[in-house]
């Protein structure tokens, strides 16, 4: 069954305290080369039949992401 992947991250201008907390933990573990962490969401959708790009774009941009604060990337199956 075709899988469609949607990645959602906070826009660069929106601060990400969760990512900063992860960065702090990495520093305490000695990973000094990591400069920045941005945390996001990864959705995997299984779709019946051929995925409809317009429909999936609408799902990604109106439900899976909040366009006020988040950027979204849609990855359609490649075959």
């Amino acid at each position: 069954m075709p899988q469609v992947v949607v990645d959602v991250v906070l826009k660069p201008e929106i601060s990400d305290p969760q990512g900063q907390a992860v960065l702090g933990a990495l520093g305490r573990l000695g990973h000094d080369s990591i400069r920045s962490v941005r945390q996001g969401k990864h959705f995997v959708l299984e779709v019946d039949g051929t995925p409809d790009e317009a429909e999936l774009k609408q799902i990604a941009e109106t439900l899976l992401a909040n366009p006020v604060i988040e950027d979204v990337e849609l990855h359609l199956p490649t075959d």
């Binding site: 305290p17 969760q18 909040n66 006020v68 604060i69």
Partner: peptide, 11 residues
């Protein structure tokens, strides 16, 4: 309403 509510800055 405009804007959004996100995780508190201090977590």
């Amino acid at each position: 309403l405009p804007g959004a509510l996100t995780r508190n800055g201090h977590l």
